[in-house]
C-alpha cells in the first residue's frame, strides 16, 4: 500500500524541529532514516498529519569521544556504526549487533536515534544501550533531559520521550581495556527480527565476573536488563550456579506469544543464550553443555 496523505516540513535546525513538534504535538511524527516509520505508514498502521524531517540536520550526525564518554549523534546510521573505528574500539557491541540488523540497503538509511525512539522490543540497539549503561540525550522546549537507557523504554513502541521532545544523542561509557562483550540472537533468517537475543557487557578478572550486564530482547514488551546476572557476579561459576541463574532468568522473563515462538520457547532460548554467553565470556566451553540438553 501507499502512505496516506500528510504534510511535510524539513527542519532547518534542532530548534526549528522543536518548534514544529511543539506546534503539532501528537499529530506529528519525526522522520529520520524512515526505515521503521515508512513501512508503518505504507501499511497504514500510522498516518500522521505532518512529518518533521530531521534528516538534514548535520548537528545530529557523528561519533565523538569526550573524556570517558562516547557520544553518538541520533542521525548516525547503522552503516556508520558498522564502519566506525571509534565504535569498534569503544563500543564493539554496537558493531556486532548492527551486523544482525536487517540488510545493507536498510542499514544505509536507518539511524540509531530512530531505532531507539521507535522502541521495537525485538530490535537490537535498544538492548545494546541498556547493556552498555547508556544515557539517552533528549531536547525539548524546556531544554535538555538525560534519561538512563534502563528508564527510557516503557513498552512496545513506547518510550520516555514526549511528543514535543527530540532524541538528539546517545552517550555511553567508553569500554575499559578489561571489558568484554557478547552478542547473539536467534532469528528465522539472518536479518529478520530476533526470536530472542542477548547483548552483554562484562568485566572478567581471575576467572570471575566482577561486572555483568545482560540485555535481553524480544523476551517482553521492552529490553530487559536481567537481574539473574547478579547471581554470577563475584562468584565461582559452576554448572550448578549457572543452572540456578538460568532458572532465575526464566522466572523474570515475561515473553510474548506470536507466530514466531511461544513464551516457553522464548524462555528456553533465553537460557541457551545465557549459557553460551557465560561460556564464551569466561572462555569455558564446558559451561555451554547444558545448552544442548
Amino acid at each position: 500500500m501507499k502512505a496516506a496523505a500528510f504534510a511535510y516540513a524539513r527542519a532547518t535546525s534542532v530548534v526549528n524541529a522543536l518548534e514544529l513538534l511543539a506546534a503539532h504535538g501528537d499529530r506529528a511524527k519525526v522522520l529520520s532514516g524512515g526505515q521503521s516509520l515508512m513501512p508503518a505508514m505504507n501499511l497504514r498502521l500510522l498516518s500522521p498529519d505532518i512529518l518533521v524531517d530531521i534528516g538534514g540536520l548535520a548537528e545530529l550526525r557523528g561519533i565523538a569521544v569526550s573524556g570517558r564518554a562516547l557520544v553518538v549523534g541520533a542521525l548516525t546510521r547503522h552503516v556508520d556504526l558498522l564502519r566506525s573505528p571509534e565504535i569498534a574500539l569503544h563500543a564493539p557491541l554496537l558493531r556486532d549487533a548492527v551486523a544482525h540488523v536487517a540488510h545493507p540497503a536498510i542499514r544505509n538509511r536507518g539511524t540509531i536515534g530512530g531505532s531507539l525512539a521507535h522502541a521495537d522490543p525485538a530490535s537490537e540497539l535498544p538492548a545494546c544501550v541498556v547493556a552498555l549503561d547508556a544515557t539517552i540525550v533528549v531536547r525539548g522546549p524546556a531544554g535538555e533531559r538525560r534519561i538512563a537507557a534502563t528508564e527510557f523504554f516503557r513498552g512496545i513502541y513506547e518510550t520516555a520521550l514526549s511528543s514535543d521532545e527530540l532524541l538528539v544523542a546517545v552517550e555511553m561509557p567508553v569500554a575499559g581495556h578489561d571489558a568484554s562483550f557478547f552478542f547473539q540472537e536467534f532469528a528465522r533468517r539472518h536479518g529478520d527480527y530476533a526470536v530472542v537475543g542477548l547483548a552483554a557487557r562484562a568485566v572478567v578478572a581471575a576467572g570471575r565476573f566482577s561486572d555483568l550486564r545482560l540485555g535481553f530482547f524480544a523476551v517482553g514488551d521492552r529490553p530487559l536488563l536481567a537481574s539473574a546476572a547478579g547471581k554470577l557476579i563475584d562468584a565461582p561459576v559452576t554448572p550448578a550456579l549457572l543452572a540456578e541463574a538460568t532458572t532465575a532468568l526464566a522466572d523474570e522473563l515475561d515473553p510474548q506469544e506470536d507466530q514466531q515462538a511461544s513464551p516457553a520457547m522464548r524462555r528456553h532460548l533465553a537460557g541457551v543464550l545465557l549459557r553460551r554467553c557465560v561460556a564464551a565470556l569466561l572462555a569455558r566451553p564446558e559451561l555451554e553443555a547444558g545448552a544442548t540438553r
Binding site: 522522520l31 515508512m38 513501512p39 524531517d53 540497503a105
Partner: peptide, 19 residues
Amino acid sequence: CTVRIDGEIVRSCLMLTIQ
C-alpha cells in the same frame, strides 16, 4: 525497488521523493 542514492543502495519504497 533497490536503487542507488549518492552511491549507496537503498529501498526506494522506504524513501519519500522529497527526501
